[in-house]
Design a protein around this nucleic acid. Structure first.
Lengths: 136, 136
DNA sequence: TCCTACGATGGACAGGTTCTAAGTCAAGAA
DNA sequence: TTCTTGACTTAGAACCTGTCCATCGTAGGA
């Protein structure tokens, strides 16, 4: 977990108590938290942390490539700290639970040149949807 | 384009001028409009149409399976009138343009049983991201 | 033509996120 | 160590998207 803090420091990040707490929250359980959940967990350790700071910090972490944004429904974005190992997401249509999954094959290879319309395609995100065991 | 109106009438839809205009807007250019853009275009023909009506009508069209919702970023949902031919989306990270694409292969088949965690997986959405010719 | 249930209206409201102006502090310089 | 400064944080307002509600209007059958 200090890995992340080390990397951030190495990139010249000014280390404040707020940023440290946000980074530690994300680096803890590898679940997919909303900004509000991150704020709630951070506030347990640093009660006066403001929402704006959480949003700012999350935005910076995304820019730095340390976490990725996941927006599976139209509701709040979720933040995925597992940005270094490529993976896709499996979402329960019932309760919204998200799991990281690792499909075989490369979806990028499945998009023929004549379906790219001159785009420089760099990424393929796959979202699997279904019902989890408890919602079935 | 009257196809859509015919189908809706056939399903017992009560045809009002508002619903007609919304359906026609969607059935016009096959682009992916936000609810607000649909409202703006509809209002060019029927200035007093309200936002609530546009949201209601779009929601009904989604329920009927005539259009699908697409949320590629965390921002406004977009409405895709091309609901009858299965396809995926190619999104420009620069300007947000969305194109329908038809990859080969079936992403559902690429998710092994031991990566399904007991879920009943029913659908796989693929979002390709990159830069369009004008944003490159 | 008349009725009436279904649809439309607009304004309030709510959740999520971004912006702003003012105050605070980490970290390099002296 | 103390000073300095610009980057960071804060609270709250503002904004955007979407939903809800009470009331009014009208499509379409009798």
């Amino acid at each position: 977990m200090s890995d992340l803090l080390e990397r951030l420091r190495g990139r010249g990040w000014r280390m404040t108590s707020q940023r440290r707490v946000v980074a530690e929250v994300l680096d803890g359980d590898h679940v997919h938290l909303t900004a509000d959940e991150v704020h709630a967990r951070a506030a347990r350790r640093l009660p006066e942390i403001s929402r704006a700071t959480v949003y700012n910090t999350l935005g910076e972490l995304v820019t730095l490539g340390e976490v990725t944004e996941v927006s599976t429904d139209g509701r709040a974005k979720r933040y995925d700290p597992n940005a270094h190992r490529p993976h896709q997401h499996l979402v329960c249509s019932g309760c919204g639970t998200i799991r990281d999954v690792h499909p075989t094959g490369d979806p990028l290879a499945d998009l023929p040149a004549d379906e790219r319309f001159g785009f420089t395609v760099s990424e393929a995100q796959v979202t699997y949807r279904g019902l989890c065991p408890s919602c079935t």
